[in-house]
């Protein structure tokens, strides 16, 4: 069963200099309970795709199906968690006040218990009564993950979730993801840290210049290369060289 299905998705931006495709004819699907790593160089269209998946942007064309519905639907959004890249918060609130605010939006039945449980899960317990402006980058990442987990979502969208964390923090967050996977949650994540992606993901999609160029298991993509990072660099370079050659002809 597929939790996420994207079909011929395109996003075109119109500027005074003409139009630019951030994402072009993207099609992929993510099975329930799996971890999908969405990789690509800077400006490849990863964040734009994720923004369309969570309803922050609208697709120019194509279809998105999250749990059988559209991301603009409130019912679908009840069941997803989203952590943006370098999440920004209301700095004068405390961590607990912010989580309480999110609980109110989701209308969580017993917010205090849920907040305690999530704080424990992301290792922020004891620091939740400090104003967010005093948090370190790693703590902000943890709080970002905490707010994404508050509604106990079936599907999680995580944009660079390991950014800003030290090796110990990364190991902890990875173990949280693996725990979520064991509980049958579906995770769609963007990341630059390919070693972590190779370790956690069941499937990996590589996007460049708005187009999906490969989608397979990390093992298949790595093939004869040293590791996933090496494979990633080679695949991007090969595709770009082929595209340049086509343009020359």
């Amino acid at each position: 069963m597929e939790d996420i299905r994207i079909h011929n998705l395109s996003k075109e931006y119109f500027t005074t200099a003409g139009s630019v495709f951030a994402v072009r004819d993207l099609s992929l699907s993510v099975a329930r309970g799996s971890v999908f790593g969405f990789l690509g160089p800077n400006g490849a269209g990863k964040t734009t795709t994720m923004k369309m998946l969570v309803g922050l942007e609208r697709a120019t064309s194509g279809e998105i199906s999250i749990n059988g519905g559209n991301p603009s639907s409130i019912a679908v959004r009840r069941n997803i968690g989203f952590m943006p890249e370098a999440p920004a918060f209301y700095l004068y609130l405390t961590g607990r006040e912010f989580l309480q605010f999110i609980c109110d939006i989701f209308d969580v039945v017993s917010p205090s218990t849920q907040i305690e449980s999530v704080l424990k899960e992301v290792d922020l317990l004891g620091r939740e009564n400090r104003q967010i402006r005093t948090y370190s980058k790693g703590m902000l990442q943890r709080l970002g993950l905490a707010q994404a987990l508050l509604n106990d979502p079936q599907i999680l969208f995580l944009d660079e979730p390991l950014d800003g964390l030290d090796p110990l923090g990364r190991a902890e967050i990875k173990s949280i993801f693996l725990g979520l996977k064991k509980r049958g949650k579906t995770i769609f994540l963007n990341s630059h840290i390919l070693a972590d992606v190779a370790e956690m993901c069941d499937m990996v999609g590589i996007i460049d210049q708005g187009k999906l160029i490969v989608c397979d298991t990390p093992k298949e993509i790595t093939g004869n290369h040293r590791d996933l990072e090496d494979a990633f660099v080679h695949i991007i370079k090969e595709k770009r060289a082929a595209a340049d050659q086509e343009t020359t002809i």
């Binding site: 969570v54 309803g55 922050l56 991301p71 409130i74 019912a75 959004r77 009840r78 997803i80 989203f82 943006p84 999440p87 920004a88 918060f89 209301y90 999110i102 939006i105 989701f106 970002g144 707010q147 969208f157």
Partner: peptide, 13 residues
């Protein structure tokens, strides 16, 4: 500041 990124994807009109 992109605090809307945390708010808009939530179940809220």
């Amino acid at each position: 500041r992109k605090t809307f990124y945390l708010l808009i994807p939530k179940p809220i009109y």
